[in-house]
């Protein structure tokens, strides 16, 4: 029982982090067709922002990081991406790769290569169903999931979200409907990457800060986005849950290294079985299938 609670809690805290990452990456991928390989570096920017403005109270510092993230992503979109969309996925992927190098090296130039840390604003632990768990992790997981929930509500329940979904489905059609695509694109990129910055800011007290810190987050975020049928914005969040659950389950029962290998192997199998991504509308999917000639 106790180990089950522990497993649940560690999955929850991973899920909160990955959901923020994957939602941001999924937005950028779905809307712009950009594989943001610099996503992890935006996490790094968020974490270092928390380190740099040490004097500012923690919640306010998160806000500062977010503002910084918005500015950085708008600049990126404007200076690098805007002219590259038409050249397809490879061009934008490479551009973001270049940006990742630049961000890492800038961080190294400004903060040095020595690991840094950020003090946690919430100390101590709380008891959850008989298990002691760090209070800060719980707070962060809940805050992250709340942000994700708000984002999803905006996407699915507001007219802004409708426009967003419309322009994901068909950019030309959206333009006809009077949605300025350029604003929409810049806005989506800003929101998507700022979510990564926010994730980095929130996670900073549990991380060792180094300029290369973001590299490790690219793969799980990427998997979360792509393991579920793309196109829907809730998909990446579900994907994050799959990745978090798979990762904490494997690492619960196997050594870390073997768990890593199994994690990748499981992904390959998952994709081989469901090359178009997991579908969350299984009932309908299977009913259309059954109609096929035998």
């Amino acid at each position: 029982m106790e180990s089950l609670v522990t497993l649940g809690l560690s999955t929850l805290s991973l899920f909160g982090f990955y959901a923020l990452l994957a939602l941001g990456m999924g937005l950028v991928f779905g809307q712009l067709g950009v594989v943001n390989v610099a996503h992890g570096e935006f996490v790094m920017v968020g974490a270092y922002a928390m380190y740099a403005f040490d004097a500012v109270p923690f919640p306010l510092r998160v806000l500062v990081a977010v503002v910084l993230g918005v500015a950085l992503s708008l600049l990126t979109e404007r200076a690098i991406l805007r002219k590259l969309y038409v050249r397809g996925m490879l061009a934008t992927l490479l551009a973001m790769w270049g940006l990742a190098i630049v961000l890492r090296q800038l961080a190294e130039a400004v903060f040095g290569a020595t690991p840094r840390s950020v003090a946690s604003p919430v100390q101590g632990s709380v008891e959850v169903l008989g298990v002691q768990y760090p209070a800060y992790r719980l707070v962060v997981a809940l805050v992250s999931l709340a942000v994700v929930a708000v984002a999803l509500i905006v996407v699915y329940r507001t007219s802004l979200g409708l426009k967003l979904r419309a322009s994901i489905d068909n950019r030309d059609m959206a333009a006809v409907l009077g949605i300025p695509p350029r604003l929409m694109i810049a806005g989506t990129f800003a929101v998507g990457t700022t979510l990564a910055v926010l994730a980095g800011a929130l996670q900073s007290p549990v991380l060792g800060l180094t300029p290369g810190l973001g590299v490790a987050f690219l793969a799980p975020a990427f998997f979360a986005v792509l393991v579920v049928r793309p196109g829907s914005l809730a998909g990446p969040v579900m994907g994050a849950l799959v990745v978090a659950l798979l990762s904490s389950l494997l690492r619960r029962y196997l050594t870390e290294t073997v768990a890593d290998l199994f994690f990748f192997a499981a992904l390959v199998v998952l994709i081989a079985v469901r090359p178009a991504g997991l579908s969350w509308r299984l009932p309908r999917w299977s009913s259309t299938r059954s109609k096929q000639p035998a």
């Binding site: 996925m89 793969a219 990427f222 998997f223 890593d260 990748f264 192997a265 090359p275």
Partner: peptide, 16 residues
């Protein structure tokens, strides 16, 4: 399979 599927698979491959 989608175009992005190969991206995930090859990324997983190099890590593995």
């Amino acid at each position: 399979a989608l175009a992005s599927t190969m991206a995930v698979l090859t990324l997983a491959l190099t890590l593995a």
